[in-house]
Design a protein around this nucleic acid. Structure first.
Lengths: 131, 131
DNA sequence: CTATCTGCAAACGTTTTGCATCTGT
DNA sequence: ACAGATGCAAAACGTTTGCAGATAG
């Protein structure tokens, strides 16, 4: 189904299609290594360079979002509908929050910035860790 | 003024006092390296191990917050009053947003999590970069 | 006195880079 | 045909660790 991805205007190599297929409909928040491991099953010669290269291209095209939820490594979010995240402070489980908030800022607080968007990180303790 | 920091209940070595004095009233969002460079002027033998060790101790005591605003490196916030951040997507300038938001989440969205707190990242373009 | 901290250097995990070769368009 | 992608290995980067000696409380 390369047609689906034509509008990305990037070269659709077999490796890239494998990455795109792994990300398609994926509701986790995979790291580069998660993606590498998954796609390597199909392409044993797959390299990290290709994974990072592809993620960078997809990020530029607005197809995925780079997340900063984990200070140890980058995670990527294949769901590009607007949403926020709820993270367990004990086990780092991540849950999507599909809920819209009205966050208007008083002019005096934004110091001349042109506002573009926002992202909320909620912190909590997940059901498992509460036990 | 070591008295000021007695309630931290950590050993107040000269190196730590220098770090604390650098952080005191500091409204930037320094990285470990920023702190290292600043304190090294006074203690040429200062090591990164000591900086990280101290930051970890201060974080545990709730004296500073670790920020994930920058995916390349950790930043620390010496201002522990509740606030959010506004980041320029072009130059990464960071501005504090001291403004309270009411962010209640519908039960069904939190999947059994016990909510603890939240942090909002606002994105925008700063005055300088708009030109 | 001793639990904890310091400073150094080595190790670690993630991400980036250089480069020769290959390939989608 | 050729701009751009791949794969490999090496390098870079921020952070962590092990350990011997030093020091705050």
């Amino acid at each position: 189904m390369p047609e689906k991805y034509r509008n990305l205007h990037i070269k659709l190599t077999p490796q890239r299609l494998a990455i795109l297929s792994y990300l398609n409909g994926n509701r986790t928040h995979p790291s580069a290594e998660d993606i590498y491991k998954a796609v390597q099953k199909q392409y044993p010669t797959m390299s990290f360079a290709t994974v990072y290269n592809t993620l960078e291209a997809l990020k530029e095209k607005g197809n995925i979002r780079e997340l900063k939820l984990d200070s140890a490594k980058k995670r990527y979010d294949p769901d590009n509908t607007p949403h926020h995240h709820l993270i367990c402070v004990k086990c780092n489980e991540i849950v999507d929050i599909h809920w819209a908030f009205e966050l208007s800022l008083p002019d005096k607080t934004v110091q001349g910035f042109e506002l573009i968007g926002n992202h909320i990180e909620f912190y909590g303790i997940c059901r498992k860790c509460k036990k």
